[in-house]
Amino acid sequence: MSDLSLLVQMGLGALLALSVYLPLRCGQLSLATPGFYAIGGYVAALLSTRWPALAAAGAGGLYPLPALLLEMVLAVGLAVGLALLIGRPVLKLRGIYLAIATIALVEILRVVNLNAGWSGGAVGIFAIPQPFDGPGGYLVCTALLLALCCWFCARLEQTRLGRAMAAIREDELATRCMGVPTAQVALSAFVLSAAIAALTGVVAAHFLNTWNARQGGFDASITTLAFVVFGGSRTWLGPVLGGLVLTALPELLRPVGDLRLIVFGLVILVGPILAPQGLITPERLAALARAFPARAAGGNGVRR
Protein backbone atom coordinates (compact mmCIF):
# COMPACT_ATOMS: atom_id res chain seq x y z
CA MET A 1 0.00 0.00 0.00
CA SER A 2 1.31 3.43 -0.87
CA ASP A 3 2.01 5.96 1.83
CA LEU A 4 -0.70 8.27 0.49
CA SER A 5 -3.27 5.48 0.65
CA LEU A 6 -2.32 4.82 4.23
CA LEU A 7 -2.84 8.50 5.02
CA VAL A 8 -6.31 8.32 3.45
CA GLN A 9 -7.15 5.30 5.58
CA MET A 10 -5.91 7.05 8.66
CA GLY A 11 -8.14 10.02 7.88
CA LEU A 12 -11.14 7.73 7.39
CA GLY A 13 -10.33 6.06 10.72
CA ALA A 14 -10.24 9.44 12.43
CA LEU A 15 -13.61 10.35 10.92
CA LEU A 16 -15.16 7.12 12.20
CA ALA A 17 -13.65 7.79 15.60
CA LEU A 18 -15.37 11.20 15.66
CA SER A 19 -18.62 9.47 14.81
CA VAL A 20 -18.27 7.18 17.85
CA TYR A 21 -17.08 10.10 19.97
CA LEU A 22 -20.16 12.28 19.57
CA PRO A 23 -22.66 9.97 21.33
CA LEU A 24 -20.01 9.01 23.87
CA ARG A 25 -19.46 12.71 24.57
CA CYS A 26 -22.95 12.72 26.04
CA GLY A 27 -22.53 9.40 27.78
CA GLN A 28 -24.17 7.17 25.17
CA LEU A 29 -22.15 4.08 24.28
CA SER A 30 -23.56 3.66 20.78
CA LEU A 31 -21.75 1.29 18.45
CA ALA A 32 -24.00 1.96 15.47
CA THR A 33 -21.29 3.83 13.57
CA PRO A 34 -20.26 0.92 11.28
CA GLY A 35 -23.90 0.42 10.30
CA PHE A 36 -24.25 3.99 9.08
CA TYR A 37 -20.80 3.72 7.48
CA ALA A 38 -22.04 0.69 5.55
CA ILE A 39 -25.17 2.58 4.51
CA GLY A 40 -23.07 5.47 3.22
CA GLY A 41 -20.91 3.06 1.26
CA TYR A 42 -23.88 1.28 -0.32
CA VAL A 43 -25.50 4.56 -1.29
CA ALA A 44 -22.30 5.60 -3.07
CA ALA A 45 -21.70 2.19 -4.62
CA LEU A 46 -25.26 1.73 -5.86
CA LEU A 47 -25.74 5.27 -7.17
CA SER A 48 -22.43 5.40 -8.99
CA THR A 49 -22.72 1.98 -10.61
CA ARG A 50 -26.45 1.32 -11.02
CA TRP A 51 -28.15 4.68 -11.39
CA PRO A 52 -27.88 5.37 -15.13
CA ALA A 53 -27.47 9.13 -14.83
CA LEU A 54 -24.52 8.86 -12.48
CA ALA A 55 -23.05 5.63 -13.85
CA ALA A 56 -22.87 7.20 -17.31
CA ALA A 57 -21.22 10.28 -15.86
CA GLY A 58 -18.36 8.17 -14.58
CA ALA A 59 -17.94 6.08 -17.72
CA GLY A 60 -14.72 6.62 -19.59
CA GLY A 61 -13.21 9.31 -17.40
CA LEU A 62 -13.10 10.55 -13.86
CA TYR A 63 -16.32 10.45 -11.89
CA PRO A 64 -17.57 14.05 -11.58
CA LEU A 65 -17.23 15.71 -8.17
CA PRO A 66 -20.80 17.10 -8.15
CA ALA A 67 -22.00 13.50 -8.42
CA LEU A 68 -19.84 12.63 -5.41
CA LEU A 69 -21.38 15.54 -3.51
CA LEU A 70 -24.85 14.37 -4.48
CA GLU A 71 -24.03 10.92 -3.11
CA MET A 72 -22.87 12.49 0.12
CA VAL A 73 -26.06 14.49 0.47
CA LEU A 74 -28.25 11.45 -0.20
CA ALA A 75 -26.22 9.17 2.07
CA VAL A 76 -26.35 11.68 4.92
CA GLY A 77 -30.07 12.14 4.32
CA LEU A 78 -30.73 8.41 4.49
CA ALA A 79 -28.54 7.91 7.56
CA VAL A 80 -30.09 10.87 9.37
CA GLY A 81 -33.58 9.61 8.53
CA LEU A 82 -32.83 6.16 9.88
CA ALA A 83 -31.11 7.58 12.96
CA LEU A 84 -34.14 9.76 13.71
CA LEU A 85 -36.44 6.77 13.25
CA ILE A 86 -34.61 4.36 15.54
CA GLY A 87 -32.89 6.89 17.79
CA ARG A 88 -35.73 7.62 20.19
CA PRO A 89 -36.54 4.06 21.22
CA VAL A 90 -32.90 2.91 21.15
CA LEU A 91 -31.56 5.81 23.20
CA LYS A 92 -33.92 4.94 26.05
CA LEU A 93 -31.45 2.12 26.73
CA ARG A 94 -28.43 2.74 28.93
CA GLY A 95 -24.85 1.58 29.14
CA ILE A 96 -24.13 -1.93 27.96
CA TYR A 97 -27.77 -2.39 26.86
CA LEU A 98 -27.44 0.49 24.41
CA ALA A 99 -24.12 -0.92 23.20
CA ILE A 100 -25.65 -4.35 22.58
CA ALA A 101 -28.75 -2.95 20.90
CA THR A 102 -26.61 -0.93 18.51
CA ILE A 103 -24.37 -3.93 17.83
CA ALA A 104 -27.53 -5.90 17.06
CA LEU A 105 -28.58 -3.14 14.68
CA VAL A 106 -25.24 -3.26 12.88
CA GLU A 107 -25.47 -7.04 12.60
CA ILE A 108 -29.03 -6.88 11.27
CA LEU A 109 -27.90 -4.42 8.60
CA ARG A 110 -24.96 -6.66 7.76
CA VAL A 111 -27.17 -9.73 7.35
CA VAL A 112 -29.58 -7.79 5.17
CA ASN A 113 -26.71 -6.42 3.06
CA LEU A 114 -25.32 -9.92 2.70
CA ASN A 115 -28.58 -11.40 1.47
CA ALA A 116 -30.59 -8.69 -0.24
CA GLY A 117 -30.65 -8.74 -4.04
CA TRP A 118 -29.60 -5.14 -4.57
CA SER A 119 -26.41 -5.35 -2.53
CA GLY A 120 -24.52 -7.81 -4.67
CA GLY A 121 -24.58 -10.35 -1.86
CA ALA A 122 -21.36 -11.60 -0.38
CA VAL A 123 -19.37 -10.53 -3.44
CA GLY A 124 -20.64 -6.99 -3.18
CA ILE A 125 -20.46 -4.20 -5.72
CA PHE A 126 -17.42 -3.85 -7.93
CA ALA A 127 -15.79 -1.22 -10.10
CA ILE A 128 -17.03 1.79 -8.26
CA PRO A 129 -15.96 4.74 -10.43
CA GLN A 130 -13.08 6.93 -9.34
CA PRO A 131 -13.55 10.67 -8.82
CA PHE A 132 -9.80 11.17 -8.42
CA ASP A 133 -6.93 9.77 -10.47
CA GLY A 134 -4.91 8.68 -7.45
CA PRO A 135 -4.72 8.56 -3.68
CA GLY A 136 -3.66 12.23 -3.60
CA GLY A 137 -7.15 13.37 -4.52
CA TYR A 138 -8.68 11.11 -1.88
CA LEU A 139 -6.25 12.48 0.65
CA VAL A 140 -7.34 16.06 -0.05
CA CYS A 141 -11.00 15.03 0.08
CA THR A 142 -10.58 13.09 3.34
CA ALA A 143 -8.49 15.83 4.92
CA LEU A 144 -11.14 18.40 4.03
CA LEU A 145 -13.90 16.26 5.53
CA LEU A 146 -11.86 15.62 8.64
CA ALA A 147 -11.09 19.32 9.04
CA LEU A 148 -14.79 20.10 8.64
CA CYS A 149 -15.80 17.55 11.27
CA CYS A 150 -13.08 18.69 13.68
CA TRP A 151 -14.18 22.28 13.26
CA PHE A 152 -17.76 21.18 13.87
CA CYS A 153 -16.89 19.32 17.07
CA ALA A 154 -14.73 22.18 18.33
CA ARG A 155 -17.46 24.74 17.72
CA LEU A 156 -20.08 22.44 19.21
CA GLU A 157 -18.32 22.65 22.58
CA GLN A 158 -19.03 26.38 22.62
CA THR A 159 -22.78 25.99 22.11
CA ARG A 160 -25.49 25.04 24.55
CA LEU A 161 -25.88 21.68 22.79
CA GLY A 162 -22.23 20.87 23.48
CA ARG A 163 -22.51 21.97 27.09
CA ALA A 164 -25.67 19.93 27.56
CA MET A 165 -23.91 16.88 26.08
CA ALA A 166 -21.03 17.24 28.52
CA ALA A 167 -23.48 17.64 31.40
CA ILE A 168 -25.49 14.54 30.43
CA ARG A 169 -22.32 12.49 30.42
CA GLU A 170 -21.67 13.51 34.02
CA ASP A 171 -25.20 13.23 35.38
CA GLU A 172 -28.23 12.76 33.20
CA LEU A 173 -30.89 13.16 35.89
CA ALA A 174 -29.36 16.36 37.22
CA THR A 175 -29.21 17.68 33.67
CA ARG A 176 -32.90 16.96 33.20
CA CYS A 177 -33.65 18.78 36.43
CA MET A 178 -31.94 21.83 34.88
CA GLY A 179 -34.63 21.90 32.20
CA VAL A 180 -32.48 20.31 29.48
CA PRO A 181 -34.46 17.97 27.19
CA THR A 182 -31.83 15.26 27.41
CA ALA A 183 -33.59 12.82 25.08
CA GLN A 184 -33.44 15.44 22.34
CA VAL A 185 -29.78 16.23 23.05
CA ALA A 186 -28.82 12.55 22.95
CA LEU A 187 -30.79 12.12 19.72
CA SER A 188 -28.93 15.06 18.17
CA ALA A 189 -25.60 13.47 19.03
CA PHE A 190 -26.77 10.14 17.60
CA VAL A 191 -27.95 11.77 14.37
CA LEU A 192 -24.72 13.75 13.94
CA SER A 193 -22.77 10.56 14.54
CA ALA A 194 -24.79 8.80 11.82
CA ALA A 195 -24.18 11.66 9.40
CA ILE A 196 -20.40 11.59 9.87
CA ALA A 197 -20.31 7.79 9.50
CA ALA A 198 -22.35 7.91 6.28
CA LEU A 199 -20.10 10.63 4.81
CA THR A 200 -17.08 8.49 5.61
CA GLY A 201 -18.72 5.49 3.96
CA VAL A 202 -19.25 7.41 0.71
CA VAL A 203 -15.58 8.33 0.44
CA ALA A 204 -14.46 4.87 1.53
CA ALA A 205 -16.58 3.11 -1.12
CA HIS A 206 -14.96 5.09 -3.94
CA PHE A 207 -11.53 4.80 -2.38
CA LEU A 208 -11.76 1.03 -1.96
CA ASN A 209 -13.36 0.70 -5.40
CA THR A 210 -15.55 -2.10 -4.08
CA TRP A 211 -18.15 -2.44 -1.31
CA ASN A 212 -19.62 -5.47 0.39
CA ALA A 213 -21.23 -6.63 3.61
CA ARG A 214 -17.87 -7.12 5.29
CA GLN A 215 -17.52 -3.34 5.48
CA GLY A 216 -18.80 -2.25 8.84
CA GLY A 217 -19.35 -5.29 11.02
CA PHE A 218 -18.92 -5.97 14.70
CA ASP A 219 -15.10 -5.83 14.44
CA ALA A 220 -15.37 -2.32 13.10
CA SER A 221 -17.70 -1.36 15.97
CA ILE A 222 -15.11 -2.32 18.48
CA THR A 223 -12.01 -1.04 16.71
CA THR A 224 -13.58 2.39 16.23
CA LEU A 225 -14.52 2.38 19.90
CA ALA A 226 -10.90 1.51 20.67
CA PHE A 227 -9.83 4.58 18.65
CA VAL A 228 -11.87 6.80 20.95
CA VAL A 229 -10.89 5.16 24.22
CA PHE A 230 -7.24 5.04 23.20
CA GLY A 231 -7.16 8.68 22.13
CA GLY A 232 -9.36 9.97 24.95
CA SER A 233 -13.09 10.52 24.89
CA ARG A 234 -13.36 13.94 26.51
CA THR A 235 -11.98 16.10 23.72
CA TRP A 236 -12.51 15.87 19.96
CA LEU A 237 -8.75 15.79 19.47
CA GLY A 238 -8.47 12.46 21.32
CA PRO A 239 -10.54 10.35 18.93
CA VAL A 240 -8.89 11.99 15.92
CA LEU A 241 -5.45 11.10 17.22
CA GLY A 242 -6.62 7.61 18.26
CA GLY A 243 -8.11 7.01 14.81
CA LEU A 244 -4.98 8.19 12.99
CA VAL A 245 -2.56 6.22 15.17
CA LEU A 246 -4.47 2.97 15.53
CA THR A 247 -5.30 2.83 11.81
CA ALA A 248 -1.65 3.31 10.96
CA LEU A 249 -0.37 0.93 13.61
CA PRO A 250 -0.98 -2.41 11.85
CA GLU A 251 0.67 -0.99 8.71
CA LEU A 252 3.59 0.46 10.64
CA LEU A 253 4.00 -2.94 12.26
CA ARG A 254 4.46 -4.67 8.90
CA PRO A 255 8.16 -5.23 9.67
CA VAL A 256 7.23 -7.56 12.54
CA GLY A 257 5.21 -9.59 10.07
CA ASP A 258 2.71 -12.04 11.49
CA LEU A 259 3.14 -10.61 14.97
CA ARG A 260 1.54 -7.30 14.00
CA LEU A 261 -2.02 -8.12 14.95
CA ILE A 262 -0.80 -9.53 18.23
CA VAL A 263 1.07 -6.31 18.94
CA PHE A 264 -2.05 -4.38 17.93
CA GLY A 265 -4.04 -6.42 20.44
CA LEU A 266 -1.45 -5.76 23.13
CA VAL A 267 -1.67 -2.03 22.50
CA ILE A 268 -5.45 -2.12 22.92
CA LEU A 269 -5.00 -4.31 25.99
CA VAL A 270 -2.55 -2.08 27.84
CA GLY A 271 -3.81 1.28 26.51
CA PRO A 272 -6.73 1.57 29.00
CA ILE A 273 -4.45 0.40 31.82
CA LEU A 274 -1.63 2.85 31.17
CA ALA A 275 -3.82 5.77 30.13
CA PRO A 276 -7.36 5.30 31.47
CA GLN A 277 -8.42 8.73 30.21
CA GLY A 278 -6.82 8.16 26.82
CA LEU A 279 -3.79 9.89 25.38
CA ILE A 280 -5.40 13.31 25.23
CA THR A 281 -7.29 14.73 28.18
CA PRO A 282 -8.53 18.26 28.79
CA GLU A 283 -6.11 18.47 31.71
CA ARG A 284 -3.12 17.60 29.51
CA LEU A 285 -4.26 20.11 26.90
CA ALA A 286 -4.52 22.75 29.61
CA ALA A 287 -1.03 21.90 30.81
CA LEU A 288 0.23 22.18 27.24
CA ALA A 289 -1.51 25.52 26.87
CA ARG A 290 0.24 26.75 30.01
CA ALA A 291 3.60 25.52 28.71
CA PHE A 292 3.13 27.20 25.34
CA PRO A 293 0.92 30.19 26.10
CA ALA A 294 1.61 31.89 22.76
CA ARG A 295 -0.06 29.10 20.81
CA ALA A 296 -3.00 28.63 23.11
CA ALA A 297 -5.32 30.92 21.18
CA GLY A 298 -8.50 28.87 21.56
CA GLY A 299 -7.80 28.18 25.20
CA ASN A 300 -11.29 28.73 26.56
CA GLY A 301 -12.50 25.42 25.11
CA VAL A 302 -9.80 23.55 26.94
CA ARG A 303 -11.36 23.45 30.36
CA ARG A 304 -14.03 20.95 29.41
Partner: peptide
Protein backbone atom coordinates in the same frame (compact mmCIF):
# COMPACT_ATOMS: atom_id res chain seq x y z
CA UNK B 1 -25.04 16.14 41.71
CA UNK B 2 -22.79 18.70 40.07
CA UNK B 3 -21.14 18.18 36.69
CA UNK B 4 -17.77 17.35 38.23
CA UNK B 5 -15.17 18.04 35.54
CA UNK B 6 -17.04 21.08 34.18
CA UNK B 7 -16.07 24.51 35.49
CA UNK B 8 -18.35 26.31 37.93
CA UNK B 9 -19.23 28.72 35.15
CA UNK B 10 -20.20 25.89 32.82
CA UNK B 11 -22.28 24.25 35.55
CA UNK B 12 -24.30 27.44 35.82
CA UNK B 13 -24.43 27.82 32.03
CA UNK B 14 -26.08 24.38 31.80
CA UNK B 15 -28.71 25.80 34.12
CA UNK B 16 -29.16 28.64 31.62
CA UNK B 17 -29.83 26.12 28.81
CA UNK B 18 -33.46 27.16 28.36
CA UNK B 19 -32.53 30.84 28.43
CA UNK B 20 -30.07 30.30 25.56
CA UNK B 21 -32.07 30.97 22.43
CA UNK B 22 -29.31 31.00 19.83
Amino acid sequence: RLFGPLSCLDNVLVGLHSADRS
